[in-house]
Amino acid sequence: MEIAIIDYGAGNIQSIKFAFQRIGINPVLTHNSETILKADKVIFPGVGEASSAMKKLKATGLDVLIPTLNQPVLGICLGMQLMCKFSEEGNTNGLGIFDAEVKKFSNKVKVPQIGWNQISALKTDLFDGISENEYMYLVHSFYAPICSETIAISNYELDYSSALQKENFYGTQFHPEKSSSAGQRVLENFLKL
């Protein structure tokens, strides 16, 4: 199976590569359109600030390519947020795959949220074998509100989407590659989609 991790200079992609290697898959890190189009599964990572990450996507034409992909795509953290239509972070227009507007947590809570939080109201085979209220590792200051595409909910200040899905596109706010054995199970499930 060919797994392509989109490498556009935004984030810690080594960790994702290593997480797949731990389950016996050797993914390719690439920003090459052909390689991405041919892959069986695509990972869209992202760490950092939304508007600068979006600029990097535009510079390589990936902003046009990603929404046209037909194979399963998994956006992680900022990757998931960029798959939404808009983010308050840098007033950034996203890829518009998910019908959600990403907002910032208020100063009623500590920002960023850093640590292990629970996920619940789990939907889709992405969470096959994952218990309700399982813990996942999250680091973020912005969140996607609950919407019709929500497939997992976490609570920090309010209930928000810790995972989204539309057709072949999946996104997790949490980092499966850093979330111990439960996170590994999510990656294994994604490979089976």
Binding site: Q14, S15, F18, A19, Q21, R22, Y137, V139, H175, E177, K178, S179, S180, S181, G183, Q184
Partner: peptide
């Protein structure tokens, strides 16, 4: 750092 990232699945 490379070896830790390869082998450890927490941050």
């Amino acid at each position: 750092v490379l070896r830790v990232a390869e082998n450890v699945n927490i941050p």
